[in-house]
Amino acid sequence: MVRTSPLLRWVLRLVVVAYLVLLIGWPVSMVVTHTFDHGFSALDKALADPNVTHALWLTAQVTAISVLINTVFGVTISILLVRYEFPGKRLLSALLDVPLSISPVVVGLSLLLVYNPRNGWFGQGLSDAGYQIIFATPGIVMATTFVALPLVIREVVPVLEEIGDEQEWAARSLGASPVQTLRRITLPAIKWAIVYGVVLALARSLGEFGAVSVVSGKIVGSTQTATLVVEERYQNFDQPTAYAVAFLLAFASVVCIAIVAILRPKQEGKS
């Protein structure tokens, strides 16, 4: 242990606490206090508005689908990246960080270019076949899935690397097929990494704004998601509703993180 003077320790603590309060704690708490300025009236009013409930329901659906897709593909890609050698592996690994590094607005625009029904690469064909992607739920799901893509993978890959492949080989030598090995050995071993990844992806998907705002067309009562409602109501001077919806979004994320923190096994991380 490095010895530090008590004074220095207190100063450091104060700096960290002040930083977190000014940057995160205070602004978020303002949303909460504004929501409950007049008791539950703002929430009641917001939840009575069919456009708001539609947006919340749409966000819930989109989040559920995109988290499901990202979990299945995330775990598959992680196993592929860690357990197998193939040409282009490094390139794939680098590409997986793209969604984190580019702006969601760019993601939205790029999806628009490929899938828009008038002159998009795929969009025209799909449109002719009767499938609408852009300005519809599929586009919103795609944009949301895109931005949250790396989160499960970045949680699962280090854990897969750490546990190594010996347990899997041991299972195989004991007679387990590849599917049995995956189900009984690999998945239980990475269970908590998947849970963390899902929670992060969930929070990210709930809050996605930029990419969705480009591809959805922001049609009120149709393709307007919860985050888009917050923006629209705030700009149209319906601030209580904006705060109420913002509060619900923040609340959902905090609940997810809290549940994981409670369920998380105490001895996790011990080998």
Partner: peptide, 28 residues
Amino acid sequence: AQKRNVGFVFQHYAAFKHMSVAKNVAFG
């Protein structure tokens, strides 16, 4: 490997960490 009916013991044990000792032994 799973069809050879060969018992293999690894240097670093390769214990199934999420299973009890009895479950480990019962696996095969």
